[in-house]
Design a protein around this nucleic acid. Structure first.
Length: 924
RNA sequence: GCCUGGGUGGCGGAACUGGUAGACGCGCUGGAUUCAAAAUCCAGUGCCUUCGGGCGUGCGGGUUCGAUUCCCGCCCCAGGUACCA
């Protein structure tokens, strides 16, 4: 074997580990560069080929930055709390910690085989007490803080309680749900419990009632994901909406800063757009509608206060707190029935289903604030309790859903737009002129909005308001395998556990299920099972998955610090992440929460930046390519793909390990499962069985999981790395397919042959390189360098292939040229690069810190050719010119060019317009 | 439904700012080498063709001398949609 990758790769892996080649140095003199991957959840299925995609890309970039002289921080860890381990524990009784440890060991083993340049001394695990001690500590910081609107930042809650004690809350401008007013005397007269209750309404993390999917049969709360068609995915039990006391994070306080901060970071527009839409800022007015014959007032938010005279009914969410109270006896039964029906639908279904218009009149009326008209109050499930005030004023002529609702229930549709036909559909554009609207008549909509708000405020019906779609984030989970809260209760009032008792570790329990009364699993723990127990009881909920992942990037800077979550001098040196690589599926989850916590920690003065991830690249998901065999109905006969149309068949997933290029290994299939042992086959005309295929998510149950291990074994890590990059653009999702992998392997073998003679002895020419070789080399330096800068690693691989093909054609074995090539290639294929680097006479291990080859355009100049591109009064030429010419020099070059001479027929052009790039316009 | 992407040969994909569509790789065809095979090397390979040329980047329109690229309207696929991570 000429290119002996198993030996080479094992050797260099051991060398790197032993010498800690990739150790990042705290507070080094070198400039820092922080390259981070989204850390994985260690699942039982092990690492599949989709995981390393982003890791390979970030590793290539990290290695590239080292070649540029940076002190690179490139760590890895595990997001090790999560549902799958808990569900496995419920099934098997095995402690999730054990499962998690085993899975992590497997992941580590798999990661090690791919040759990543991680600094493993900095590994973190969110489920280790040494780590979650600080997750709990940050939770406490949030608990002990409120958001001061005037200072536009978070401030310690002590400041607030001092203010309350000295002057009450009249001067306080804070983000809060608390609406009453009290004086200093009032405050000091409140009981401890009352004071705590008020402070609760200001804290950045607080207890409040939230709607959840409750499954009475399972006694647990379910994710929307776990609810399918109104019943639980497991067991098919009914699920209903229920209010539960939950911890929440006041992320809304940061809505505006989360929005404006996006302008300061280098993320794709798509992720920024997703976050912007998620935060959903809208300007409008909140308007109060009095309820007839009641002292209650319904507050609605509208972006179209100009259409207020078009209101012909109101719709409340079925869960709106006033519904029971205002419903008349006549409608009580119908309303109750509708509420029940709505409670069985998930929020997503309610929003997705626009075709079925449902609603129920309550019998109650509201009073229009301007006209004094009575308007019907309905309930409808297209209004969500969790968004805005849970109530809308319905303007059928200006909103399509309101229009559909009115049409369906035969409610009046008033037209308040001049010259607009609303008989077929609502008119939602903001460019109409208002009519039939008293003081708003003849005003264009945009102006009418301002006038309406002015009038609403003047008459005291409401006020102009900016509303965000973003909701405060529910932070409680009724699970076992998560961070316990550092919270205990006295008389059901929560208090934070003192810092000296952190971490509050997960207590042992007999079962990982909720209790019989529906309390979370931690309620099963005896008092003695807690490492710290205080008050009447401890908090039974645990934190959500995103708690630990909202700050882990900070811990890598100082992973073993027992006294602080991160030492200030270290975070001052490393600062925020320069490059973050991970999936775009985290756009509105993790990426928003991490930004929120970072801004908070910045406000509190713990870190010197308020955006965690400066630049981000989102790698696409690698999908599996499932193979199918087709069983003829009621038989044990299988028909090949091209003939399946002639029979009634059931597709069955066949394990992809038995399939090569869609051809089934029939013998392997027969022994795969006993029932296939005597299967018969209807084959293609060439005597083979061809499988069908489909692109799906990789999953054990679809027998389409490709682990990297077997590919590393067969082709080597360098081939796998380059092949994963070669597969397509990093950011695109794509199906996994091993068809082309030998092409990449051929490339590496061809590279090897450049250095060796037929007997596998090193054979190098130490003389001057040829012009052609230099041209090939510098073309490659330029292209590969550009590819690295724009994360186009797939074309990067292609360019290496072109380079090696050319050098091979030139029979080039020039030492100087090959040495540069090895350095250039080392980020992509580090093992073979190390091996060849040493063969070139360099010291072992030094290629990782060699200097990135410098591009010299002079080697390319002679290749300037040109051709006319079009003609229409002005002419365009495409001419390849040396880079770095001034505008004047380019014009000179163009005029002197033989093509110009030919096309201009000797006459001087009127003007030469040089556009950026290599296209030149010539006006004749 | 809503938000965000994507759709180019037999296949994965390239084309960076509107300028020779299909780089590079796989596959396939033919040839060299070999007792033979593997490996390697050379040539060809978008489709149709009456060999003049014609047609081609999901579909239908538009802007432009020129559109894979920009605009409008559709279709299909993927991710997210607040307790999967």
């Amino acid at each position: 074997m000429e290119y002996n990758f198993p030996e080479i790769e094992a050797k260099w892996r051991a060398f790197w580990a032993e010498n800690k080649t990739f150790k990042a140095i705290d507070l080094s003199e070198k400039p820092k560069y922080y390259v981070l991957d989204m850390f994985p959840y260690p699942s039982g299925a092990g690492l599949h080929v989709g995981h390393p995609l982003g890791y390979i890309a970030s590793d290539i970039y990290a290695r590239y930055k080292r070649l540029q002289g940076y002190n690179v921080l490139h760590p890895m860890g595990y997001d090790s709390f999560g549902l799958p381990a808990e569900q496995y524990a419920i099934q098997t009784g095995q402690h999730p910690e054990k499962t998690t440890k085993e899975n992590i060991a497997r992941y580590r083993d798999q990661l090690d085989k791919i040759g990543f340049s991680f600094d493993w001394d900095r590994e973190v695990r969110t489920s280790s007490p040494e780590y979650y001690k600080w997750t709990q500590w940050i939770f406490k910081q949030l608990y002990n803080a409120y958001y001061d609107v005037k200072l536009d930042k978070a401030v310690s809650i002590d400041t607030l309680s001092q203010e309350f004690a000295s002057s009450g809350n009249t001067q306080v401008d804070a983000v809060t749900d608390y609406e009453d007013v009290f004086s200093a005397e009032d405050w000091n007269a409140f009981t401890e419990v009352e004071q705590q209750k008020i402070l609760q309404a200001y804290r950045l993390t607080y207890l409040a009632d939230s709607w959840v999917n409750w499954c009475p049969a399972l006694g647990t709360v379910l994710a929307n994901d776990e609810v399918v068609n109104g019943v639980s995915e497991r067991g098919g039990h009914p699920v209903e909406q229920k209010l539960m006391r939950q911890w929440s994070m006041r992320i809304k306080a940061y809505a505006e800063r989360l929005l404006t901060g996006l302008d300061t970071i280098d993320w794709t527009d798509s992720i920024k757009d997703q976050q912007r839409n998620w935060i959903g800022k809208s300007q409008g007015a909140s308007v109060n509608f009095a309820i007839a014959d009641s002292d209650k007032v319904i507050e609605v938010f509208t972006t179209r206060p100009d259409t207020i005279f078009g209101v012909s009914f109101m719709v409340l969410a079925p869960e709106h707190p006033y519904v029971d109270e205002i419903t008349t006896n006549e409608y009580a039964e119908a309303v109750e029935g509708y509420k029940k029906e709505a409670s069985l639908k998930s929020e997503r279904d309610r929003q997705a289903d626009v075709k079925n218009i449902t609603g129920q009149f309550t019998g109650a009326y509201a009073v229009h604030p301007f006209s004094g008209d009575k308007v019907q109050i309905w309930i409808g499930d297209y209004v969500l309790a969790s968004y805005g005030t849970g109530a809308v004023m319905a303007v059928p002529c200006g909103d399509q859903r309101d229009w559909d609702f009115a049409k369906h229930f035969g409610i009046e549709i008033k037209n308040i737009f001049k010259d607009q036909d609303i008989s077929e559909a609502a008119y939602a554009e903001k460019d109409a002129v208002i009519a039939n609207s008293d003081f708003l008549n003849d005003l264009p909509a945009k102006k009418a909005i301002k006038t309406a708000i002015f009038e609403i405020e003047k008459r005291g019906f409401g006020k102009g308001k900016t509303q965000y779609r973003l909701r405060d984030a529910v932070f409680s989970r009724q699970r076992y395998w998560g961070e316990p809260f550092p919270i205990y209760y006295n008389e059901e009032t929560p208090y934070a556990v003192g810092d000296e008792h952190l971490p509050v570790t997960l207590p042992e329990v007999d079962k990982y299920l909720p209790t019989e009364d529906g309390e979370p699993p931690l309620a099963r723990a005896s008092k003695e099972a807690w490492n710290h127990f205080e008050g009447d009881r401890m908090e039974y909920n645990t934190m959500p998955g995103w708690a630990g992942s909202s700050w882990y990037f900070l811990r890598y800077m100082d992973p073993n610090n027992e006294n602080e979550f991160v030492a200030r001098e270290k975070v001052d040196y490393w600062k925020n992440v320069d490059l973050y690589i991970g999936g775009s599926e985290h756009a509105t989850g993790h990426l928003l929460y991490a930004r929120f916590w970072t801004k908070f920690l910045y406000d509190m003065g713990y870190i010197p930046f308020d955006e965690p991830f400066q630049k981000m690249i989102n790698q696409g998901m690698i999908l599996g390519r499932s193979s199918f065999v087709y069983r003829i109905k009621d038989s044990n006969r299988f028909v090949t793909n091209s003939k399946k149309a002639d029979y009634e068949v059931t597709p069955i997933h066949a394990d992809i390990s038995m399939v090569d290029n869609d051809h089934l290994d029939i013998e392997a299939f027969k022994i795969w499962r006993p029932e296939f042992a005597d299967a018969e086959f209807i084959l293609e005309d060439d005597g083979t069985y061809v499988c069908g295929h489909e692109v799906e998510k990789m999953s054990k149950s679809k027998y389409n999981v490709q682990t990297p291990d077997e590919l590393v074994e067969k082709f080597g890590a360098d081939t796998l790395r380059m092949y994963e990059m070669f597969l397509g653009p990093l950011e695109q999702s794509k199906p996994w397919d091993t068809k082309g992998i030998n092409g990449v392997n051929n490339f590496l073998r061809k590279l090897w042959r450049l250095f060796h003679d037929q007997d596998n002895n090193v054979s190098l020419n130490e003389g001057e390189p040829s012009k052609d070789a230099l041209k090939t080399l510098h073309k490659t330096i330029k292209k590969v360098g550009d590819d690295l800068e724009r994360f186009s690693f797939n074309t990067g691989v292609s360019n290496f292939m072109i380079c090696v093909n050319e050098l091979s054609d030139q029979k080039c074995n020039n030492k100087a040229v090959l040495e540069q090539l090895v350095v250039l290639l080392s980020p992509y294929a580090p093992h073979i690069a190390e091996e060849l680097w040493v063969k070139l006479g360099n010291e072992a291990g030094t290629v990782s810190y060699a200097k990135f080859p410098e591009f010299n355009a002079d080697h390319l100049v002679e290749a300037n050719h040109a051709y006319p591109v079009s003609f229409n009064g002005k002419m365009r030429f495409k001419i390849e010119l040396p880079t770095n010419l001034s505008k004047e020099e380019i014009e000179q070059e163009v005029l002197a060019h033989e093509i110009s001479q030919k096309w201009l027929d000797g006459s001087a052009p009127k003007k030469v317009i040089v556009v950026p790039g290599r296209i030149v316009n010539i006006v004749v």
